[in-house]
Nucleic acid binder design. Sequence first.
DNA 1: GCGACAG
DNA 2: ATCTTGTCGC
Length: 323
Amino acid sequence: MIQTPTIFDRLVLKAAEQIPRGKITTFGEVAKALGDVRAARAVSISVLRDVKSRGGPWHRFVASDGSLGAMAGKKRELLLSEGIPIINSRIRDLERFLVKADEIDVPPILLKMRLAQKKLRERVVLEDRLEEVDLAAGVDVAYGLYRGLEVGYAACVVVDSKLDRVGFKTVRMETTFPYVPTYLAFREMPFIAASTKGIQFDLLLLDGHGIAHPERVGEACHAGLVFGKPSIGVAKSILVGKVVDSVIMHKGEKIGYLVRKEGQSPAFVSPGHLVSLETSRSIVEKFWGRYKQPKPLVLAHEIAKKLKRGDVPPTIDLLHEGG
DNA sequence: GCGACAG
DNA sequence: ATCTTGTCGC
Ligand SMILES: [Mg+2]
């Protein structure tokens, strides 16, 4: 009957155990203890999901401005009973009751993940090491809640140079890590690996950035390196930098291109691995269909959603039915 | 309240 | 990404 929280959820729970009655902490402080404030939202989502599905600890977590966040009514009641002063839906003298990041004993996993990214970055090759590109694979993942678990539905679709779909594979499995900005690869790599396993392709297209990432190692770089395959990232919005004349610039570096087809919203293209900046743009244009993304990604997105809806069964089902 | 951070 | 019907705007 015990559900299976992810590593991230377990660490948030471990942090929760360290907040005594009469004290509070913020989602951001816990995120900092885990290694990056960017995970603040992921912490709040984890806490909320945990109290709803397992009745876990939740009321001693508040927002950094002292506001209470979700389920404010009940939270207010519980905190007041523990001696925390609340005025106008905000904690008064937050500092006085706050348990800060350095007082929370949890492993800094996000710091380690960042180090792993920096290590991977050294191996990224931004030169064309690809021969003919006939088969382009695109992967996308849809997410949903199933019996208190967060489940991902991945689809890998292979398209040939005539833009005909020549194969696909789908996978259903539990999520292992939340979405945290700049760490997307750690959330989606298990799905990318499972859905491409045993599939033949020359190039991998992913729904996210390549080098257009603060550390220059977006999801497309990460996956390309792990598989030793050419890869390109095609995102629907910017993560870092700004667009100047259809070029994505960041810290004085050219990191990608804005590609747009008539009447469509733009796509942001950046190389992942074994492909140059210029070639990444031309290849993506070569596989462009009639939508706002290259065809393999459009199809992968559609199939992933159908899978989630239950319209089609997964090729591989890795979901452990609890009970 | 605004800015804003792939999916 | 997800929650979701009718409604607003180009
Ligand atoms: Mg996606």
